[in-house]
Design a protein around this nucleic acid. Structure first.
Lengths: 343, 343
DNA sequence: TATTAGCACTCGACCTAATTGAGTGCTAAC
DNA sequence: GTTAGCACTCAATTAGGTCGAGTGCTAATA
């Protein structure tokens, strides 16, 4: 049996209706709503076929049909090809105000949540190459030195180092030159034990300070790895009864609070370099506790090999059209952000 | 009518039982559970009195009694006097590992959540005096200057400033000296427009840079104001049916995600300088959406006039004893943290 | 051959009434 | 002052009944 044009139309009608109502849809509804001019009986026959093909499911004997994961997948694939929809009202909202990066990302997450009524997430851009760009020690007061570390992509990190006795200007200058000449432009992998030992030797009695600085550098990189994730609209899940029973809601909220789980999504999105919009439907989700959800994600580019991820999480019957449009818009705004910075 | 000893015992028995079960408790239960050796009829008489006094409530005619807010209040006050309980297993968990402040606070929130099964929050310590401690400009690359700003309490902030043309070492030194001699040790309030104008004049053609630096200082202070809040265990609310109906759960989750609302709690806790443990029961809560909850908070001291807040939020029938113990323990650990840093 | 009308059937949703049982207040006896 | 006993209340549960949306199947129709 094949999926001919009429079956396709019926399938799409079923899904579209289900997306709106969240209720199983019956043959009579389709017969009346569509312009196919077919009786409910004919629709019933076709629906039986569609069920056999695995696109729709009957939750119980005397109920209408709801889309299966396979049905959603079909619908989404068709939509992605067809539409290049943009959500107009979001355009340039982000670009309008110049703000700090973290505020902006938080804002992006919120915008998406308000616009779609689903839960959203945005990760801070993360560099794939970890190259040390700038490093400086300053004397803060008699017993504290401030180390400022900048890595590629302008991730900045500060560490305060305790010292037993005050260092004079000349020593500070010497240490700064020593560190910068040897470390600048190196990636983390290149800063190995041999190099560290050599540096410590040259620093003489100030070896321990060098060690602390290097530790701080290492930690900067590490910190960059367990990255910041901004979420918004987690409470939107309560708008969808199919997600708001106690167990499911608890699991979802937990995922959003812990954020640890969400990183799986990032890895998954990242490995695929194609830089497109990805849609996970139900069982396709890489996150166990989201088997009842659909997830739409995309990467955004921040130049310098930096990239972050945005994502929307909602019920399987989400408004894919709108969600994909929203994601696209926000993605392009974030992409532009960097280019604007370049000027 | 007075609250004699027997009434007190009965009231406490009712509350204790209700805390465990979450169900209205009847006269027969009290008659059997306590060692008062009174019949259910007698208990009934006393319960009628207790209801008249406002300590307990009958949710409907033929049900047992549940504690009113006043009843909880009585119970909590009595407990606070009596007990100086410590939660042993938590001792020194935080102190054991030396970690970065934000990790540690996140950990503290998590510890409390796991230990109590309620939702918890921890705010980063915040300075009440905003004094500029250290300020330094460095040339990062040809077109970017890095400004490092440290305020009292070692809150550090970086800003990258774009410049049209590269500045030479001498100019950088001059700007640094200019800024430090005039601004160090000043509070934000003292950095007024007159001072800024004078500085800009002295900086000559580099006035715009001075302006950007001052802007960054202002923002550091501001950012310090919309402070970091770490939460954990928000999904614990699903363990308590009285909080997990859709509307309430949604509101609570929202409060925990937005965090904006939680700041009310901080202000309230802070104004009272007594630095004790505070318990808000039901209607006493400063947060509208938490009228069905109880909230226990405490401040912790981080020296230098820095203080943060920890809090636990749960149902009115929370295990106050345990919660207060947990809060006390975590508070003392955080208090110690700073003292340990001092060494 | 494809489509449609008709019909018997299924089954969750909803309504109602009856039953249950925990708990109460009151009264009279101890 | 305490207690036993009893009538009463009322939410929660159960059981039975109806309703209606939806189905599959069959026979008639275009």
């Amino acid at each position: 049996m094949e999926l001919d044009e009429r079956k396709t139309k019926i399938l799409q009608a079923i899904i579209k209706n289900y997306l709106e109502t969240g209720e199983p849809v019956g043959s009579r509804t389709i017969s009346k709503y569509t312009d196919l001019n077919l009786s409910s009986a004919t629709i019933r026959n076709e629906m039986a076929d569609l069920e056999e093909l695995g696109f729709i499911i009957q939750p119980h004997t005397s109920a209408g049909r709801i889309p299966s994961d396979k049905g959603y997948r079909f619908y989404v694939d068709a939509m992605m090809l067809e539409h290049e929809k943009e959500v107009e009202q979001l355009k340039d909202v982000l670009l309008e105000k110049e703000e700090k990066l973290d505020h902006m990302l938080k804002q992006a997450a919120k915008l998406m949540a308000v616009n779609t009524n689903y839960a959203t997430m945005v990760t801070a851009p993360r560099s794939s190459r970890n190259v040390l760009k700038f490093l400086q020690l300053s004397r803060m007061d008699a017993s504290h030195i401030l180390a400022v570390i900048v890595i590629e992509g302008n991730v900045i990190k500060n560490t305060v180092i305790d010292v037993a006795e005050s260092l004079n200007d000349e020593t500070m200058l010497k240490l700064n030159i020593l560190l910068n000449t040897h470390l600048n432009g190196l990636s983390v992998e290149e800063i190995n034990l041999g190099l560290i030992t050599a540096l410590k030797q040259q620093a003489g009695m100030y070896g321990p300070i060098i060690e602390e600085v290097i530790d701080a550098v290492a930690e900067t990189i590490k910190e960059d790895e367990d990255l910041e994730i901004y979420t918004s609209g987690a409470n939107n899940i309560f708008k969808y009864p199919e997600l708001s029973d106690n167990q499911k809601a608890s699991d979802l909220i937990n995922a959003f609070e812990e954020k640890q789980l969400l990183t799986q999504l990032i890895d998954d999105t990242n490995t695929d370099g194609k830089n497109e919009i990805k849609v996970y439907i139900g069982e396709e989700s890489p996150i166990q506790t989201m088997k009842d959800c659909s997830i739409v994600t995309a990467n955004y580019e921040f130049g310098d090999g930096m990239r972050g991820m945005i994502g929307i999480i909602g019920p399987k019957r989400m408004d894919y059209d709108k969600v994909v449009g929203t994601i696209k818009t926000i993605k392009s705004q974030l992409d532009m952000m960097y280019k604007k910075d370049e000027d």
